[in-house]
Computed example of a mutant assay.
Amino acid sequence: MNLFSFPISRTNYAIDLISARMHDFKIMETIVISGTPRSGSTWLMEILESLPDYKSVFEPFHPNWYPEFRKLGIHYDPYIPTPEDYPKLREYLGRVFTGKAYGMFPYKHYLAPGRVLKRLTANKLLVKFVRANTMLPWVANTFDLRAVYFIIRHPCATIASQLVTGYFSRITKEQFLDEVRKVSELAGSEWLMDKLSGISSQIELLAAIWAFENYIPLASERPYPWYTVIYERLITDPEEELDSIFGYINEDVPEGARKRLRTPSKVTRKTYGKTYIGTPKQLIKWREKLTERQIDAILEVVSWFGMDFYGNEPEPDYDALKNWRPPF
């Protein structure tokens, strides 16, 4: 933490507090975005934030930024079965979705004058998570939200970005296995559990976490109570995908969304730059960052979950992803 982190964090907290006292945020107007770390969720958040009345709530499951969440004692990214109830978590998320949870994040770009003005004047919320995929079905079925967006990205691209930026999961192998065992259909596969128990490298663990965090939403009952954004399609067919994303909530595409589509997210531009954003090179950057052995290991682990719609190609098999069903 540098010298300026604390005052920046306190100022961001104060802005959220003032905003909550100025507006009556309603759950039925709140939009949620969920994805794994480095899946493009921040980029999607910034695109949707072009809606004039919306401001973002950034990572309310981050224990260092949200003291109220830290007090719940919920560890990283737990699996939450859809039919069950979790009163403390439900109460906390109710506060998040109505603007009553205040973040102490140390990002000074949130203090730019235009950003502060929107944070104070916007009367609707856009809440972004990278720690909610394994509870996304529960969240979507528990709260009467305006919309939920789930974003998925190639596991090799996601993990390459995690390794480069350091935004990867801190969950241990033992914690991960404990969560998998809570999912009866996965725990019931002795073959899968043996494979997962034999994981011996960081790359394999990151691949298994990616697979699990995306398996839970994709294995949910259809029709899904969310819109699935495929990161690669947002790159290769941006205009049509923007129409679909905003059409899901019956909104026209704001002009600002098209501009943000060509701009890397705040958490990406310092590491990767922006020269390849919005070009085909963006989809193959992971081939420069990972070795062949790492790529093979990632794809093999993901295949254990039957998620073979991603392979060596930069884009998924879109039909296979659309029609995918859990193998267990």
Rank of each mutant, 00 (worst) to 15 (best):
R153E: 10
E179L: 08
Q162W: 03
R146D: 05
P155D: 02
R146F: 09
L163K: 15
S201H: 10
K173A: 11
D243T: 13
S189Q: 09
R153I: 11
F150M: 04
Q162N: 09
A207Y: 05
A208T: 04
Q175V: 04
F212N: 03
V164D: 02
V164T: 08
D237I: 03
W226F: 15
L242W: 12
T236N: 06
L242I: 13
T228F: 06
Y215N: 02
A211W: 00
R181T: 01
R146P: 02
W226T: 10
V148Q: 02
L242T: 08
L242M: 13
Y227D: 11
A211S: 08
E213W: 02
T236S: 15
F150D: 01
L242K: 13
V180D: 05
L192A: 06
L218T: 09
E174T: 07
E241L: 09
R146G: 06
T165A: 07
V180H: 02
E239S: 14
P217F: 10
E232L: 12
A211R: 00
I209A: 06
F143C: 04
R181M: 06
S197K: 10
T236I: 15
Y227V: 09
E241F: 03
W226H: 11
F143Q: 02
M193N: 04
Q162D: 05
T172Y: 04
L234Y: 02
L206G: 01
H154M: 07
E241R: 10
Y215K: 01
T228E: 10
E174Q: 14
Y231H: 14
L196Y: 02
Y227C: 12
E204C: 11
V183A: 00
A187F: 01
R181I: 00
Y167C: 06
N214L: 10
M193T: 02
S161P: 08
P225C: 13
D178S: 12
R233L: 15
F143I: 04
L186I: 04
E190D: 10
W210D: 12
K182V: 07
E241C: 08
E179A: 04
D243H: 11
E204N: 08
S197Y: 04
L192V: 01
R146N: 09
F143W: 07
T165Q: 13
V229P: 02
S189H: 05
F168H: 11
Q162H: 00
T228N: 12
F212P: 00
V180A: 02
P223M: 11
L234W: 01
W210T: 06
S161T: 01
L196S: 06
Y224S: 04
T165I: 09
K173D: 03
L196Q: 01
A207N: 00
T236A: 09
V148F: 05
R222V: 11
V183K: 00
D178G: 05
L186G: 01
I171R: 08
D243L: 14
A219Y: 10
A207D: 03
F212V: 04
K182G: 05
K173N: 11
I209N: 08
T228V: 15
R170A: 12
P217W: 13
K195S: 06
